[in-house]
Design a protein around this nucleic acid. Structure first.
Lengths: 360, 360
DNA sequence: GCGTCCACTGTAAGCGCTTACACCAATGAT
DNA sequence: ATCATTGGTGTAAGCGCTTACAGTGGACGC
């Protein structure tokens, strides 16, 4: 049945093959109702000063009454701009990432940006996810977590003109934000040495993880500067399970490896809190007491570390997220400005898995 | 200087006020290069069978060579469809949410959907975030976590025609996925009773949290059915800090409240693992031993619970996320089908903070 | 009374895509 | 030879918005 002419444009039949269709109030509806042109409606929503107060008020009233919302895709298309940023993280359920993301979100909430989250649990998934995030029109900026920037990935990033901020990793060509992992290792070594340990051991995550190896290197370096050697068999590496060995089981297994080899270190540096927690469980099962028999120090300062009395190196995760967002905004505003690297110093949180250095 | 006519359309000058501009290969470029029309190019990318094999191959080759990617906004606009789904979670850094989201992502990765994450740490932020997620053209579906669906929020959701799936909460009008929290409480009570406790106590999160109060109700109900009364002063409620008292500090403080009041329960049910961990710390500081003096049982089964020996009720978080995605897809495919509620039964994970019931 | 300027508003083109519809061989049936 | 039919392709309209550019009418100066 033919529609009477001049019928509301929203009443047009839509192709039936659409599963999900979003119709809604458009600027045409507002314009008609308010008796102005669509250009004027658009200007009102873009805070263009070239609209009279009266007209602005009418348009706003009508839009409010009709519940108008600008269509995001149409807006992006016309503006050649999106208001979403993408984060590519290895593992959402890892507290570090979740908390950095939280810091990011908290800072973002003041802006009108939205956050798209991609997951890349293994190294070879990164490129694919980066490609998605960099897909034309998708995101105004990309935040890439803990990824080694080299080879194809490096090229991919360099050839894109979407701003990128690196979190927990480094490349001279991109803005980045990270913790001084070497320094963290050094602090741990010095602290443990001051607390009187003689036989250090390291429980390390996958060595291809840059943070893990930097932490270990810092630790070993500081040890050596004090004349203490980290024996090869006292460095146990695990890349087990999820997320490169940054998990409890890896810590547990690593500790068991040490114990079963008859190695009895009196000071342990774990490259993450979760590894430390796993190790403590292994120690408990083997009836070794902490910190009496062996002192242990983690890395991250998870909220739970406090309730477990774990001495650790704190990373300001929430702050890192906020700062990452700032960097991205900065880069978007000034694409040509020089690359900025923000490095946070980890701070030692002294609790009960170590003997206070002052008592040593 | 005037451009020679017929210049590549991508060379047009763009308005200078754009901070970030995305230019790129469009179907026009592909069409020109391949010597076909844009319709044909579009058909190739939409797997339309009405394209000859030869043409298809040419278009694909050209697109590949030029690195063509369809523009997401343009596609959404033309198709009146998005391929992003939005999740609104109270707190990303809460393991439960992070893990459910992970499950969701893992299931999504097979599809071409993207995940937008909104954060609503307090109840009054929910509406605003839901409004953003429901914004016209933004998402194909919304996943709402742990939100009490009533009042304005209820109306908001009902008037939207975007599919919605509720996670960790319930409303008869929407698909939902949750854990049987009452049952969890009952299991905890029965287990503790069988393990010989006489004087139960509950460490409960904010009572306006539906999961928290259901867990407590289940616990209390089962107790009463066995003739054991949960004394009023043995139920300590905390809504402290972030996320409604589902945190370590709340558990710690709750336990301290009990201890300072001279109350010495021999069995404690905490409405979450993190609360149980806080409580165990308080107990340790007060030199009460677990499970000898007091048995304790948590809820969630965080990965860490295993390494702490915490007896708890396990929620299948990862699976819940995957299932939530399935529900959403189902709803998108069949908008009129009847509402589905998936309820998972929590399962008891028996560890060392309780005495095995068989020994009681 | 006329031109100038200014504040405001409208027209229309275009963002990059999808798809209805028209069209045009080539094919086969009659 | 004629007419549908069919497979492949192109044309053009439209998705909902932004914005350059072109008015329009009133205030003001002369």
């Amino acid at each position: 049945m033919p529609q009477p002419e001049g019928s509301d444009r929203r009443e047009r039949a839509l192709p039936s093959f659409y599963k999900q269709v979003y119709v809604g109030i458009t600027i045409y509806d507002i314009a008609e109702e308010a008796g102005v042109s669509i250009a004027t409606v658009s200007r009102v929503f873009n805070d263009n000063p070239r609209v009279s107060e009266g007209t602005r008020a009418i348009v706003q009233e009508v839009a409010e009454r009709l519940g108008y919302q600008p269509h995001v895709s149409a807006r992006s298309l016309a503006r050649r701009q999106t208001e979403t940023i993408s984060a590519i993280v290895p593992m959402l359920s890892n507290y570090f990432y979740a908390e950095v993301l939280k810091g990011l979100q908290d800072r973002m909430s003041a802006s009108s940006f939205d956050l798209l989250v991609y997951s890349a649990p293994t190294l070879d998934e990164i490129e694919g996810q980066v490609e998605k995030a960099l897909h034309r029109g998708r995101s105004a900026g990309v935040m890439l977590f803990s990824a080694p920037i080299k080879g194809d990935l490096e090229r991919q990033l360099q050839h894109s003109d979407t701003p990128v901020v690196l979190v927990d990793c480094y490349h001279p060509g991109f803005d980045s934000i990270s913790t001084d992992n070497r320094l963290g290792g050094e602090i741990a070594a010095e602290y443990l040495l001051a607390a009187g340990i003689r036989e250090p051991a390291v429980l390390m995550a996958n060595p291809h993880s840059v943070p893990a190896s930097h932490r270990m290197q810092g630790f070993r370096g500081a040890l050596e500067r004090k004349g203490v050697h980290l024996a090869e068999d006292h460095l146990v590496v695990s890349s087990d399970g999820y997320h490169d060995g940054f998990n409890e089981q890896a810590g547990y297994d690593g500790m068991m490896t040490l114990l079963e080899a008859g190695i009895r270190p009196d000071g342990i540096f774990a490259t993450s809190d979760v590894q430390a927690i796993g190790a403590m469980d292994a120690l408990r099962n083997a009836h070794h007491s902490v910190p009496e028999d062996v002192q242990i120090i983690g890395f991250d300062d998870l909220p739970i570390a406090r309730y477990l009395g774990l001495t650790t190196l704190r990373q300001p995760m929430h702050e890192m997220g906020g700062r990452a967002f700032d960097l991205l905004m900065e880069r978007m505003a000034h694409p040509e400005s020089t690359v900025a690297h923000t490095v946070f110093a980890p701070s030692l949180v002294d609790r009960h898995t170590t003997r206070s250095a002052t008592l040593a």
